[in-house]
């Protein structure tokens, strides 16, 4: 699975690049080992592991720590092991298989890899094949019907699933789209769990993503505050000019 953000949403897709991942992988074990022993060794790789990125990689090759949250053996036939691995972003599964082979003492390597989950997105949300996309575009451009295109492309707002939210009053939207900091009177709703310092998705009442910001106050504080800055924008997504300008020259909009 590869989440691809279009145009405006490219500004926030990076936020999920560094989120946890889930894979299903096929590992080739070079000599048969008892299944119990394989399960035992896999268990040893759960937790924090150390990896040096492989030669063919696009990052600096210094040893780094990565957490393997879950590693589960789904099937083993004495040669091929089907495993589900949930881990931090930047964990090399090929390296993991190699190291499992070393601990087993018989050697192993990765045969196939499929990503099931990136950040909030899971394979079960329905994946789009390249031919689905090109058929949908054909139907839109040649037949003038955008129904299929609206199915294969989803609103980019879903990228922020899992992030706490601030929902803006209409009058505050344009100032945030222009990059201003958000003041308390501009807030319509806020996630109860929002903590100071959290990354927060800033939405309109219609659900449009205006920006991703950093909270300066907690959810409870924002509800109580009658003035003051509540969040600073980190990445602005919405273009300017969609919502009306509702503040006086020289002042910050409420």
């Amino acid at each position: 699975m590869l989440p691809i953000a279009l145009e405006k949403m490219t500004k926030v897709i990076g936020l999920i690049m560094h989120s946890s991942k889930e894979y299903v992988c096929v590992m080739d074990v070079h000599s048969p080992v008892p299944e119990d022993r394989l399960r035992g060794v896999l268990g040893e790789f759960k937790g924090v592991i150390y990896q040096r990125p492989p030669l063919r990689s696009s990052v600096k090759r210094s040893v780094r720590r990565r957490a393997v949250h879950e590693i589960e053996l789904l099937e083993y036939d004495g040669k091929l092991a089907l495993m589900r691995v949930a881990c931090d972003a930047g964990t090399y599964i090929r390296k993991l298989c190699w190291d499992i082979g070393l601990v087993l003492g018989v050697g192993a390597h990765m045969r196939e890899l499929r990503r099931m989950k990136t950040g909030p997105f899971h394979e079960s949300h329905g994946l789009v094949r390249l031919q689905d996309l090109s058929e949908a575009v054909y139907r839109w451009k040649v037949e003038g019907k955008d129904d299929m295109l609206r199915k294969v492309v989803m609103p980019g707002e879903y990228v922020v699933c899992g992030m706490p939210l601030i929902v803006l009053r209409d009058t505050a939207v344009e100032s945030i789209a222009q990059g201003a900091r958000l003041a308390a009177p501009g807030v319509a709703m806020v996630s109860e769990r929002l903590e100071k310092g959290d990354k927060v998705a800033i939405l309109t009442l219609k659900g449009e993503l205006v920006a991703v910001g950093k909270a300066v106050m907690s959810g409870g504080e924002i509800i109580e505050a009658s003035r003051g800055i509540v969040a600073e924008p980190l990445r602005v997504v919405m273009e300017t000019g969609i919502y009306p300008r509702a503040w006086r020259r020289g002042g910050i909009g409420g």
Binding site: L2, L6, E7, M9, H125, V128, L130, M154, P155
Partner: peptide, 10 residues
């Protein structure tokens, strides 16, 4: 819709 869109590609 496309400008603010996302595709979960197989």
């Amino acid at each position: 819709y496309i400008q603010y869109g996302l595709i979960l590609l197989d």
